[in-house]
Structure formats: C-alpha cells, structure tokens
C-alpha cells in the first residue's frame, strides 16, 4: 500500500516535464479553448524549434557537467556571417547554411579548447566568449541589422509536402539525430559517463578531453543551426539577436529534466517538451493579451515553479532511496 503510493509518486516526479506540459495544456484549454487548435499547437512547435535546437546543443554540454553561456553570441556571429555572405557575395542558401554551421563549430571549438586544454572553468570561459563573441559579430555587422534574402526567408513559412513547416522538420531531425548520438553511440554514452564523474571516467579509459571537446563543438554547431532556423523565420538579424537565448536554452533543458550537475537527462521527450513549454507560455500570454511588460515576470514565475518541482523531486527520490533499510511487514 505504502509502497504502491511511493511508486506512484516517483513515477509522477520522474515525468515532471510531461506533467507540467499537460497541466499547461489544461490551463490553456480552460482559459482560452481556441488556443488548442491544431494551428496554434503547430505554431508553438514552429516557434519553439529554434530554441529547442539550441537547447539540445546545450544538453550535450550540461550532460558533461559543464555549461555554455556563449550560445546566444554564437547564434549572432554565425547568422551575421552567413547573412553577409549571402548579401555581398550572393552565396546560395545551402553554402550559407554550411558557412553558418562551420562558424558555429569553430566558436564551439574555441570553447572546447579553453575548457579542455587550458582548463578554464566552463562558466568563466563561455561567459568570456559570450562577450567577445558578440563583439566579433558586431564588428562584422557594424551593429546594423543584416537581412537574409527572400528565397531563404521563404523557407521559414514553407512546408515540407505542404504538411509540416520546415523549422519543425529540422527540429525533428535534430531531435532524432541527438537521441541516436546520445543513446546509440559510444560518444553519447561517454558523455553521460563524463557527467557522472570525470575522474572515474578517466580511470575507465575514456579520453575525457576529447569527449568534453566534442560536447562543446556539438553545442556550437547546434547553436548556429538554431540561429539560422530562427533568422529564416524572422527575416533579419538585428544587433540584439540571440541575446538572452542562452538562458532560455538552459531553462528549456532544465525544465526537460537535464541536471545542471551532469549525467542526467534525455533529449526526447524531456528537452523537446521543455522548449515547447517555454514557447507555449509566451504564445499563451500573447493570445490572452497580457500586458507585454508582465511576460517576463510570468515566464520567470512558471520556470521557478518547474525548478522547484525538480528539486523537490530530487529530495524526495533521495529520501526514497534511503528508506529500504528495514522491511516493514
């Protein structure tokens, strides 16, 4: 009886992201039933796709026990460079995307070198890169907005087989790829191992530096891709593009059950739901016509409750695991 209740509670707590999501849907359904139409849900996913992609990149780094505060600046630099290439040298959309990804990967590589070779704390290294990186971006753009050409931005509203918008398709591909990488490749398993304990990982014969570097490079790559997907929808890159997105990405990952201490969390459904959740809040607030100034307050309050639920879960699970000393008959 007691045991069954414990099991139920731990199932509930372990699926917190899912639960929060359902609660949110119910709330929207009750307040504004029209927000649950297919179109709106598709919209939520579409708008969440870019932050979701960035959050998945962030997940790699968080799983190793690190953090990347520079993804927002990375998004900016890579999008600016890709945009300028298209504007000035009339590069096609494909090569521009490739260029964008290369810049993102280079950005990630610098983080990786700082963290693994120079042994600088991830928080400090990526904070510095956040500042420097944006500086580099502004140097290229002269702090003017960089517009993407029309054919590219057309993709933002185009749909694959006129069924699914491209951003969602890309998001889905990224989710599938990341899940495959994390769960079915040696690198993925080693990322989890590293996050559990770096010293133990080293003793187990894992090349810790290489795995950690891979996580930062992947994070940079996905940040650039997320930035590209976002610009395709927005049309241009203004000077503040990506600012603060690092926090949304971290929040999405943590809401999705990724631990800031490393080693715990899943891309699907966790991080996907986390990203959609954050986006859904803002869509919901817009459709409920809440004062724009109040949006950050409400979003923050919701995230706070999600983090609180997560810590309560951890405390509770710890208690549960300590309870098996005596068998009550």
């Amino acid at each position: 009886m007691n045991e069954r209740r414990n099991k139920l509670v731990s199932i509930l707590l372990n699926n917190m992201p899912m639960l929060l999501f359902v609660l949110l849907l119910i709330a929207f359904g009750a307040i504004a039933p029209e927000s649950l139409q297919y179109q709106n849900i598709e919209n939520a996913f579409k708008q969440a796709s870019y932050i979701g992609i960035v959050a998945i990149g962030m997940t790699f780094v968080l799983l190793t026990g690190g953090i990347d505060l520079s993804v927002g600046s990375n998004m900016y630099v890579s999008a600016v460079i890709a945009g300028l290439a298209m504007q000035r040298y009339s590069v096609g959309a494909g090569p521009a995307l490739l260029l964008c990804l290369v810049v993102g990967a280079v950005f990630g590589t610098i983080n990786a070198i700082a963290v693994t070779k120079l042994r600088i704390l991830p928080f400090v290294a990526t904070l510095a890169m956040m500042v420097s990186g944006r500086g580099v971006g502004l140097m290229f753009s002269k702090s003017r907005a960089v517009a993407f050409p029309d054919p590219v931005t057309g993709l933002g509203s185009a749909e694959l087989f006129s069924l699914l918008p491209y951003p969602i398709v890309i998001f889905a591909l990224v989710v599938g790829g990341a899940a495959l990488l994390l769960h079915r490749t040696q690198l993925g398993r080693q990322i989890y191992a590293l996050g559990y304990d770096k010293e133990v990982a080293r003793k187990a014969g894992i090349n810790a530096d290489r795995v950690q570097a891979a996580a930062y490079i992947l994070c940079g790559l996905f940040a650039a891709l997320g930035g590209f997907v976002s610009v395709v929808q927005l049309g241009n890159v203004n000077a503040g593009f990506g600012k603060g997105d690092e926090f949304d990405a971290i929040a999405a990952a943590v809401l999705g059950g990724v631990s800031l201490f490393g080693g715990v969390g899943r891309v699907f459904p966790g991080v996907v739901l986390g990203a959609v959740f954050i986006q859904a809040i803002s869509i919901g607030l817009v459709s409920a016509q809440v004062d724009l100034y109040l949006h950050p307050l409400i979003t923050a309050a919701v995230i706070f409750s999600a983090v609180l639920a997560d810590s309560l879960r951890n405390t509770y699970l710890k208690k549960l695991s300590r309870r098996n000393i005596r068998l009550e008959v």
């Binding site: 495959l180 079915r184 490749t185 040696q186 690198l187 398993r189 080693q190 989890y192 191992a193 996050g195 559990y196 304990d197 133990v200 990982a201 003793k203 187990a204 014969g205 894992i206 080693g263 715990v264």
Partner: peptide, 26 residues
C-alpha cells in the same frame, strides 16, 4: 569506478562498445 547513472552494459563497454558493421553505432 562505476557510473551509477548508466546501465550495467554501458559500464561494461564504456571504453569500447561492439559496433554495428563498423559504423559508429552501438
């Protein structure tokens, strides 16, 4: 020196999983 966040099989092969036809897939 085990990773308690991973499964037994992950721990046994963490530094060398058997691969699917030489692909980097486990």
């Amino acid at each position: 020196n085990l990773f308690s966040n991973l499964s037994v099989v992950d721990n046994l092969y963490i530094d060398g999983f058997p691969r699917l036809c030489r692909l980097p897939i486990i």
